[in-house]
Every structure is written in C-alpha cells, then in structure tokens.
C-alpha cells in the first residue's frame, strides 16, 4: 500500500474541508472495498478521511412511512435491527447476506451505495424500493443516483449521510452469489410499493451496474405471480459477460431470481 495520511474528523464540515485541502483524498467508511483496493495499489489516495465515527451518520429510525438508515450503519447492524426486520424484512435479510460476518461488521450502507459496485447488494434495494439518498448537499432519488458501474450522481466532496427507504407493501431479494467473493453474480430485488407499483431492480448482471427490469415490472404489474415472468424476454446485450458467467447465463439468472423473489411473497 502506498503512503497515506489518516484523518478522523468530528463533523461533516470538517471532513469536507480536509478532503478539499488534500491533494487526492478519499472518504473512508467501512473500508472493505477501499482498503483491499489500496493494497492492490489500484487506489493511492494521499489522505483518508474516516467518516465512521460521525454521529450525524448513525442511527436507524422510522417515520412517515419510511425507514431511514444512517450512512455509517454497518451491514451487521442493519441485519440485526428489530426496526429494519419489522419494517422491511427483505432489507435486513439482504444486509445479512453481504460478504461474511467479519465484512458485515465493518462495511456500511453509505459506503456500498457511494461505491456502486456492479455486484453490490444495497444498490438493488435502494433502486428496488425507490429510496432517497440524502447527502451533505441534497436529496437524490435512487432512480437518478446510480449512473453506471462504480459511478453515481455524487459530486466531488459530497457525502452520503443517510438512505430513506419507503416501506413497501411487500418485498423480497434473491441472490445467486459468487461462491468465492460472495458478491451477487445476479441479485434481484422485487418490491410492491404502498401505491401498488411493482419495482424490480437487478444487480450483478448489468454492464452499467444496477438497473430496473422494465419487462418483468410490466409482467408483474398485470399478474403478480412467479409464472408471469417466464415469457419475459431479457435483452442480454447490456449484460456482463466474464469468467463467472456469460451474458445469456445472467439473463436467465435474472428471471430465475425474480421468480424466486416473487414466489416468496406472492
């Protein structure tokens, strides 16, 4: 790992000031992606600004039909939270299947969303539930937040502070994980909103990261049943193809995972 300077600011303002004063600084949350990336020398930030101790980024609360989770909340905290399990059990279950126990004790929801790894789980929940991503500057709808692989609407220096998930009528997440990395080879989050809309978000499969499966949404909107998905055509030209699975294989996995998710809640 290249040399770096570690900072532990006591407020969001101080964090932003340290970042803007640094030559090439990065915010550090749980570090479960950034630190391995630095060890491989694929990232060499001059400064690391640790956000995990900021009280402004902590806590889980429910109000006005939405569940709000602070950005520095770990996957383990979300998975074991009574509030999350009661309001959106699919979200608690998703958090409990990220990586392994040690990774879940460090990794955070804010870090996962800001990093937008194409195989990460949380982007599927945020997009599938139609979440709002709150930052140090504004609020951004999930539909406008994820801009492609490892790319988001975040501007330089902007910090994800919390994520608000509208509580759905029902939701489920099914993932086919890569056995080694435990990332989603394909993961599908299905939600029926309080307004009756069906939202289906796919992670792990898209060449441009997480996306909504419009064809499956349309099919489920007319009949909310697992066997409504079989006839949907999935265009594999925009899907990832690598040593773990071809685009056609992933196209099939999208339907199978969607069927399983719907079967769990239909």
């Amino acid at each position: 790992m290249h040399e770096t300077r570690y900072h532990r600011p006591s407020s969001l303002d101080e964090a932003a000031k340290i970042l803007s004063a640094s030559a090439d600084g990065r915010y550090l949350s749980g570090g479960q992606t950034l630190i391995p990336t630095m060890k491989h020398r694929l990232a060499e930030p001059t400064d690391l600004i640790d956000l995990t101790r900021l009280a402004e980024l902590k806590g889980i609360s429910e109000s006005g039909g939405a569940l709000t989770i602070g950005a520095a909340t770990t996957h383990a905290e979300v998975a074991s939270s009574d509030a999350v399990r009661k309001a959106i059990p699919a979200l608690a279950a998703l958090a409990g299947k990220i990586g392994d126990p040690a990774v879940r004790h460090k990794g955070t929801i804010g870090g996962s969303i800001a990093n937008n790894d194409p195989g990460a789980d949380y982007p599927a929940a945020a997009l599938g539930l139609g979440a709002t991503i709150h930052t140090s500057k504004r609020a951004i709808a999930a539909d406008d937040f994820f801009k492609g692989m490892f790319t988001t609407a975040l501007e330089d220096g902007e910090i994800v502070t919390k994520v608000s998930f509208p509580i759905p009528t029902k939701a489920a997440y099914e993932k086919f994980h890569n056995a080694a990395s435990r990332y989603a080879l394909t993961g599908v989050f299905v939600a029926v909103t309080k307004g009756g809309d069906v939202r289906v978000a796919v992670t792990g499969a898209g060449a441009s990261g997480v996306f909504r499966a419009g064809g499956i949404e349309a099919a489920l909107s007319s009949t909310f049943a697992a066997d409504a998905i079989g006839g949907v055509a999935i265009d594999s030209s925009d899907l990832l193809s690598d040593i773990h699975g071809s685009a056609d294989y992933r196209a099939n996995l999208i339907k199978v995972m969607a069927e399983r998710a719907v079967a769990a809640i239909a």
Binding site: Y6, G31, Q32, I35, P36, L48, P101, A102, V103, H105, K106
Partner: peptide, 8 residues
C-alpha cells in the same frame, strides 16, 4: 469479528 488485514 473483523479481518485485521482489512482495517488500518
């Protein structure tokens, strides 16, 4: 439990 190789 945490992985001490993945924490500064």
């Amino acid at each position: 439990a945490v992985k001490s190789c993945t924490m500064l």
